[in-house]
Design a protein around this nucleic acid. Structure first.
Length: 254
DNA sequence: TAGGCCATCTGGTCCT
DNA sequence: AGGACCAGATGGCCTA
């Protein structure tokens, strides 16, 4: 039986290896020639080029040893992905205060009684939002520095107490990541359904399109003025002003 | 029912 | 050698 077919068990800490069509439980049914890896069961390399050393002869592992090793590898991979999901959840907590499922231990689409409305941000949405939020913070910092300079010049002092604008908390920029989601429009129709539909339209976001993903890595120049005036992205996720990427930068080489 | 999102398994590659 | 990381494959769940 595949535990994935058991609702509610997904995402929970699995101390035991999964049983399923692709689990180690079915290894005995694997076709001839199946190998866990070239390291576990060194087989002739089909694409071995001349000059390359053939793999060192290694001890053949028994079927039980192979299964144990495969369980260990699977367990590590599961743990790794769970850690990744934990980190993603912590990022979601920062980005989306109304996330319905704060923990990855809950089914991603569950609508349990008592759970807050709305849907958990997808991974891609979380990452795009985080990126945009970081960019916005950077531009806010720049704007703050610029205004601080103006205030200092106006007061005729170079150094002095923090301007009252800052002390009063009236900074006209962004107050938190949720502002990336709760635009004026969404505030007017502030319902969970609108949030869900906005998230559903994330896939249509031009910023998230494959082509734009490349360009979106380029440095962008934001300003609070531009953020308040420019046309907003039609997708419901980022809801950020469109901007032009003039100098796309290459990805980091793998 | 199709599409999106996800967890898991798996084999390969790289690093320590 | 063992672990981390990655990407492809697969199948389940959910929503429109």
């Amino acid at each position: 039986m595949n535990v994935l077919s058991n609702p509610g068990i997904r995402g929970q800490e699995q101390s035991l290896p999964l049983c399923g069509p692709r689990s180690v439980q079915d290894l005995p049914h694997c076709p001839p020639g199946f190998s866990l890896s070239s390291r576990l069961n060194p087989a002739p390399m089909l694409g071995l080029q001349s000059g390359q050393r053939p793999p060192k002869p290694q001890r053949e592992l028994s079927q039980e040893e192979q299964q144990d090793l495969r369980r260990k590898i699977n367990s590590r991979e599961r743990k790794r992905m769970q850690d990744l999901n934990i980190a993603m959840d912590s990022l979601r907590e920062v980005m989306v205060p109304y996330a319905s499922s704060p923990s990855s231990s809950s089914p991603p689409h569950s609508h349990q009684a008592g759970a807050p409305p709305g849907r958990r941000l997808s991974k891609i949405s979380t990452l795009v939002l985080a990126r945009n939020y970081i960019l916005l913070l950077g531009s806010s910092l720049q704007e703050m520095r610029r205004l601080l300079g103006e205030v200092s010049v106006g007061m005729g002092v170079n150094t002095g107490p923090v301007p009252r604008l800052l002390l009063a908390g009236g900074w006209p920029l962004i107050s938190g990541p949720s502002q990336l989601l709760l635009t004026q429009e969404s505030l007017l129709t502030s319902t969970a359904s609108s949030s869900s539909s906005s998230l559903a339209s994330a896939a249509k976001c031009p910023l998230m399109s494959p082509g734009h993903m490349e360009a979106s890595l380029a440095p962008v120049h934001w300003s609070s003025a531009g953020a308040s005036r420019g046309p907003l992205c039609p997708c419901g996720v980022c809801r950020l002003p469109r901007f032009n990427h003039s100098n796309p930068v290459p990805r980091f080489p793998k």
